[in-house]
Simulated scan of single mutants.
Amino acid sequence: MAKFVQNVGNYRAESAWGAMDLVEIDGVSVKLHWTDKPYKWHENDGAEAFVVLNGEVDMHYMVDGLERVVTLGASDIFIADIGDRHVARPRGEARILVVERNGSE
């Protein structure tokens, strides 16, 4: 059945990194996350697409053992491949669309 999700810019979860499950496609989940707190350093077992819908997020990631950071704003995308160590740290509230393998952190 078709689904229409409105006003995602107003979505707010009960707690940081809470999510609205939007759809599952062949073992891949698409979720709308709300947060106002950092996540945790982690590595995914599959690729992950991280799309900022509103707000700003500092994405910290490791390259050759060195920490790097990029600030993502609305419409920016961060793609982590398998094993890419990273952590998202929002600047205030942010809403983020995350596409990743089911069961990933």
Rank of each mutant, 00 (worst) to 15 (best):
N102W: 03
P38F: 03
W41T: 08
S29R: 02
A49M: 07
R101Q: 11
R89S: 05
A80N: 04
S29G: 11
W17L: 06
H60E: 15
N10S: 15
F4T: 14
N102Q: 13
M62I: 11
D21T: 05
I77Y: 12
K3Y: 10
E24F: 10
G9N: 09
R12K: 14
W34G: 01
R89L: 02
P90R: 00
P38K: 04
E67G: 09
V30E: 04
V52C: 12
G65V: 05
S15L: 10
V87E: 09
P90E: 00
L32Y: 08
V23G: 09
S15V: 06
F4W: 15
V8P: 13
I25Y: 13
I77F: 12
Q6M: 14
Y39L: 14
V99A: 10
I82C: 00
L22H: 06
A16D: 14
V52D: 01
V98G: 12
Y11L: 00
L53R: 13
T71Y: 05
T71P: 13
Q6P: 10
E93H: 08
E48S: 08
D76A: 06
G27Q: 09
G27S: 05
H33T: 01
T71Q: 15
E67S: 09
M59T: 06
G9L: 06
N54M: 10
T35R: 00
L97N: 02
G46F: 03
M62R: 10
D64I: 07
E100H: 05
A13L: 13
R68C: 09
W17A: 08
V69Y: 09
N44W: 03
E56T: 07
R95P: 04
D76Q: 04
I96W: 03
V52Y: 07
A13T: 04
D36A: 13
N44V: 02
Y61W: 13
T35E: 04
G18K: 01
L32Q: 06
V70E: 15
A94R: 02
D26F: 13
A74L: 02
G9A: 09
D64L: 09
H42P: 11
N10T: 00
G55I: 00
S15G: 10
Y39I: 07
R12Q: 15
S29Y: 04
I77A: 12
N44F: 03
F4V: 12
V23D: 13
G27R: 08
V52P: 08
E56I: 01
V5K: 14
R101Y: 03
I79Y: 11
G55S: 07
A74D: 05
K31G: 09
H42V: 02
E48G: 04
Y11V: 02
A88K: 00
R91Y: 07
P90W: 02
